[in-house]
């Protein structure tokens, strides 16, 4: 079965394009893995039971997307690595997630802002990715976009509640926005890999996506009575393996079992 799938994919792309796709699919997988990991840290500690459930739900969706992506990456690579090898057995500088998703949970406001920035990109991006000529990516996008729509509704709703809630919630969300906004720009700043795949028409063009993202932020922030931050210097690096100090600690936990007991089945 695995061999048939490989054979079906193999002749379609040159080795160079396969490498680009592999790097890129890993980037997407690392991104949902890391954000799912962060959200799962909330499990049992949410501000109210219903939100504990919601956070776990989003984490589970992201984990599901992660697995589909790593499986496809493993296929593209064709070196018999498994989803777990890719998730657990790489070094920090090989992870390709944007900086935003490795940022700590902080208080609920930080989690909500991080989620909203990601969901806004993720949802609108997946909508476009559904029409990719790469059938694997299109299929993964088609499944995940429905979940991402729910995630975005959830985080937008909380931006509004916290922005237009109490004085304290307003202060907290202001603080979270000023801390996290600098990481948003990386999502839509293409790396050379992304640029190459965009030129090949395999993934959506971020420049074309930007007005949609901005318009949704403007709409939600207006309802939340929050000003949209302007002119914030963008932090880049994660998508090319240059991470914040947080990633190492996440990996120490995430990889603990696989590193301690190499080569075993679980």
């Amino acid at each position: 079965m695995q061999a048939t799938l490989n054979a079906a994919v193999a002749p379609a792309y040159s080795p160079e394009v396969r490498q680009l796709l592999f790097d890129y699919v890993l980037q997407l997988a690392d991104t949902s893995l890391l954000l799912g990991h962060r959200l799962s840290e909330w499990c049992g500690h949410g501000p109210i039971l219903e939100q504990d459930l919601a956070l776990a739900n989003i984490a589970l969706d992201l984990l599901g997307e992660t697995r589909s992506l790593y499986q496809y990456a493993a296929e593209l690579e064709g070196r018999r690595r498994t989803e777990d090898d890719l998730a657990f057995l790489r070094v920090a500088t090989d992870y390709r997630n944007p900086l935003l998703v490795e940022q700590p949970n902080g208080d609920f406001a930080h989690t909500v802002v991080r989620q909203f920035l990601f969901d806004n990109f993720h949802y609108h991006f997946l909508q476009q990715l559904q029409t990719s000529p790469n059938e694997h990516l299109a299929a993964i996008a088609e499944k995940s976009v429905k979940e991402a729509a729910y995630h975005l509704k959830w985080s937008a709703e909380w931006i509004i509640r916290l922005g237009d809630g109490t004085e304290e919630s307003r202060q907290r969300i202001d603080k979270a926005i000023s801390k996290l906004w600098r990481y948003a720009g990386e999502l839509t700043t293409p790396t050379p890999t992304e640029k190459a795949l965009q030129d090949l028409g395999l993934i959506p063009n971020y420049t074309a996506l930007q007005p949609t993202l901005d318009a949704y932020v403007a709409q939600v922030f207006a309802e939340a009575t929050l000003p949209v931050p302007q002119q914030i210097a963008v932090q880049l690096g994660g998508k090319q393996g240059r991470h914040s100090e947080h990633l190492g600690y996440i990996l120490a936990e995430l990889q603990y079992m696989q590193r301690t007991y190499p080569g075993m089945q679980w």
């Binding site: 799962s40 499990c43 049992g44 776990a56 739900n57 984990l63 995430l254 679980w266």
Partner: peptide
């Protein structure tokens, strides 16, 4: 009961086990 099991979500040994465990702890909340 979510706490002792939640203690292993971030360290689960495989992606599959992690998904199952997270779904399980979520069931407990339900």
């Amino acid at each position: 009961g979510m706490l002792p099991e939640g203690n292993w979500i971030t360290r689960a040994p495989s992606l599959k086990r992690k998904s199952i465990l997270l779904a399980k702890v979520q069931d407990e909340a339900g």
